[in-house]
Simulated assay, not measured.
Amino acid sequence: MAKSLKALVAEARSRVDAISPTDAHKAARDGDVILDVREPVELDSDGAIAGAIHIPRGLAEAQADPDTGKANDALTAKRGGGGRVHVLCASGARAALAADSLRQMGYEATVIEGGLEGWKKADLPLKD
């Protein structure tokens, strides 16, 4: 049976934990990473999180896999117990799918509740 995007996201969310923007920000200061899976145009128009790793959703698995030759070193350092990855997008759907994929790849990944809007509502820092 074919699944809708809504069903795929719901299944992914059932397998990954969520974290508040404030707790994710604190965890990042302690060594975890924030992974923003929005597209570059979204970063330009809506703002980017200071200190976050920015990898568009379509490239997340390739850059999370150290064997692809395209890996992001800051991200792969967290694989297999090296710390947590807190994933963010605009609303949470792409973040849930990415966090679930990362979990299957050996990462401890969470979804940042509320996406970028939640981050902004918590009055957390963005890049200047």
Rank of each mutant, 00 (worst) to 15 (best):
L97I: 03
R57Y: 10
L43T: 10
K120F: 02
R13N: 07
G115W: 07
W119M: 03
P21T: 06
E11C: 11
D73E: 15
A18K: 10
L116K: 01
A48K: 09
I34Y: 05
M1Y: 15
T22S: 14
P56E: 08
A28H: 03
A96E: 05
T110S: 08
H25N: 12
D100T: 08
D67I: 13
V41K: 08
A109G: 04
L8P: 03
A95R: 01
G92P: 04
G106T: 05
K70L: 15
R79E: 14
L97Y: 01
S45Q: 15
Q104K: 15
S101C: 15
E39L: 05
A93T: 12
R94H: 07
R79H: 12
G81Y: 04
G31W: 05
A60W: 01
R103W: 06
D17P: 09
A109Q: 03
A62V: 15
V85D: 00
E61T: 10
E42A: 12
S14H: 08
V87E: 00
G115Y: 09
R94I: 02
A109S: 10
D17L: 10
A90E: 14
D123G: 13
E11I: 11
L116Y: 02
I55N: 01
A10S: 12
G81E: 10
D30Q: 09
A48D: 06
R29S: 15
G47R: 06
D67L: 15
T68G: 04
A7Q: 05
R13D: 03
G80Y: 10
L126H: 14
P125G: 09
P66K: 09
E11Y: 13
T110F: 06
D36E: 09
R79N: 14
W119N: 00
H86K: 02
R13Y: 12
S91Y: 06
A109R: 00
T22C: 08
D100S: 13
A74H: 09
E113T: 12
A52W: 00
E113M: 06
L75S: 03
A24P: 05
L35D: 01
R13V: 07
E113S: 10
D46N: 09
V16K: 02
R29T: 09
A122P: 02
